[in-house]
Amino acid sequence: MTKDMTKAAIEITDLNFSIENLSILENINMTIEQGDFAGLVGPNGGGKTSLIKLILGLYKPQSGKITIFGEPVKSQRKAIGYVPQYANFNSDFPISVQDTVLQGRLGVSSCFGRYCREDKVIAQKVMQETEVFDLAQRSIQSLSGGQMQRVLVARALAAEPKIMLLDEPTANIDQRAEKDIFDIFKAINERMTILIISHDIGFVSDYINKVFCLNKTLICHDSTPVTSDTIHKLYGGHVSEVHHHH
């Protein structure tokens, strides 16, 4: 499945989105090229998750267009890996790490009925990549936040996607684990496009090549340098700058 390199991985044109007459996103235009490691930052309630869900086709826009590799979203779902917010997660569910990761094979596997050998080989490969292979038979109920996060990344990778969409993948883990997981993303970025939601501009800026600041509409994009003025526009003042050293 080789993609035409001239097509943008994700292209959003004049997008507007509202839920029950409450405007969530206005006039969004953004392009993510193939191979990008893009960050989407902004305050809570600024529409970051809604934008991701629009790209995934989970929500329908009021107006505007989203294309994945130049095609409509629904036809390109196989190309997308999705890591949802850990906070919304049913961690009480009786399922092993391996069976969770195998779910990533749904819709892309060529096997009917149970998961087959090919699925398992791919699941093992991605579990090794995200360093959860040793936990394969463990129940997800017994995992720490950082471990669970990597399992969810492995599940998304199991679909062998061309684009990864990650919603706050480091919200529940400590800083050291955060760096480890970003190093995994860096390696993944060698072979696919990444769009990541983060609350932490300073941290992601060490890794990403493109940033989009979102608060209902795009405040900054592409390689606009992020100044304190932009941050003010984004968060509406009262933000103290914290410098990160990694």
Partner: peptide
């Protein structure tokens, strides 16, 4: 596997088609 997937994480199941 489909029944387990929709029970575990319905949004992910939609994304996986």
């Amino acid at each position: 596997k489909q029944l387990v997937a929709i029970s575990f994480d319905i949004e992910f199941a939609i994304v996986r088609g």
